[in-house]
């Protein structure tokens, strides 16, 4: 929908097609065209739904990350946080099922716990950054290590697995859905729309951008700077919790390798989408496009023998840089 409106404006002002706006979309379309040429199954229903459902975890987190980055912050801890929350959730559900059996109530309690734990973890990051005045980069680098160690410790170095009864009861949350769309895709889409509305049309979204572009001016304009910044980290923590709620039913397990490098993928998706890394401007629909670009690259590489698998990382790097160059090319001219 946003894609349509953008191309309409583009057509209306044919002279002023702004690559900075449509850059990520161009990259996405090019990738899709390459995919169609390389493999006839690329646009098959199962492949498209697979890619969308797989994007949902990073996507949901990246939506939260868009707000943090727009307000001039950063959070490196989300990948480890996701692993830690997933571990907590699995342990709690296994523990509850001993006394309560494999029931829906146990799953609901697990979901509440995951959301609460995400919220709390985000709050801890936020309060330390805003009240103790620690640089976001360093603080979240620290919590990243802490959560990663905690999940390794909780899992005793191995893998935490959900009991098989609970696992089969919970798995429809990832594999099931309505109208041929699985739940992760639906949740991702709803959150994206909600995020876009909050970013564009609410005072909170504008405060984020104001703080990101100039914190002092924002303060003089009576924006509650600390409170808004704290809220962005809490929101991000909550989105990590939501991502975990969708992640755990997939394989029913968490280990020290869960969520590895998710933080960098989420940040890359946000920046590819056109949000400024230094803050001050953010767009949620761009983030969604960024996430889809990242998942499509790995999907395409798996669907072909186009390049040696050793070079997968290089291809990803090139596409990320190109997608960003496309939208920044008007910068140096001034």
């Amino acid at each position: 929908m946003s894609a349509e409106s953008i191309s309409n404006t583009g057509a209306a002002r044919a002279r002023k097609v702004d690559l900075r706006v449509i850059g990520p979309l161009v990259a996405l379309v090019v990738l899709i065209l390459i995919g169609v040429m390389l493999n006839p199954n690329f646009l098959s229903y199962s492949n498209v739904t697979n890619v969308l459902a797989r994007s949902a975890f990073i996507g949901i987190i990246a939506i939260g990350m868009t707000f943090v980055i727009t307000a001039g912050g950063l959070d490196l801890s989300v990948g480890s946080m996701a692993a830690f929350v997933a571990g907590l959730m699995i342990m709690a559900m296994n523990w509850l099922s001993v006394s309560m059996g494999d029931s829906v109530v146990v799953i609901l309690l697990g979901i509440v716990l995951a959301l609460g734990a995400g919220l709390a973890a985000g709050f801890i990051n936020g309060i330390l950054i805003t009240r103790a005045g620690i640089e976001a980069f360093i603080l979240t680098l620290g919590t990243m290590g802490i959560y990663r160690s905690l999940i390794t410790w909780l899992a005793d170095g191995g893998t935490l697995s959900l009991g098989s009864g609970l696992s089969s009861l919970y798995s429809p949350v990832y594999y099931g859905g309505i109208l041929g769309l699985s739940w992760p895709i639906i949740v991702f889409a709803l959150l994206a729309i909600l995020g876009e509305i909050v970013m564009r049309h609410t005072a909170f979204g504008r405060h984020c951008a104001a703080i990101g572009s100039n914190e002092k001016v924002a303060r003089y304009s009576s924006v509650h700077v600390q409170r808004v910044k704290l809220a962005t980290y809490v929101l991000l923590g909550l989105s990590v919790g939501i991502a975990v709620v969708m992640y755990v039913p997939r394989l029913g397990s968490a280990s020290a390798t869960t969520g590895l490098l998710w933080e960098l993928e989420a940040i890359a998706a946000v920046i590819i989408g056109g949000t400024l890394l230094k803050g001050g401007f953010g767009r949620v629909w761009g983030t969604v496009v960024g996430v889809l670009i990242l998942s499509l690259i790995s999907n395409l590489l798996n669907l072909t023998d186009f390049v040696s698998p050793y070079l997968n990382g290089a291809i990803q790097g090139v596409v990320i840089i190109l997608a960003v160059v496309l939208q920044r090319n008007s910068g140096p001219a001034r």
């Binding site: 199962s46 798996n302 669907l303």
Partner: peptide, 9 residues
């Protein structure tokens, strides 16, 4: 993810 892609391919 890799297996999903193998299955599509």
């Amino acid at each position: 993810g890799l297996m999903q892609d193998y299955l599509s391919r």
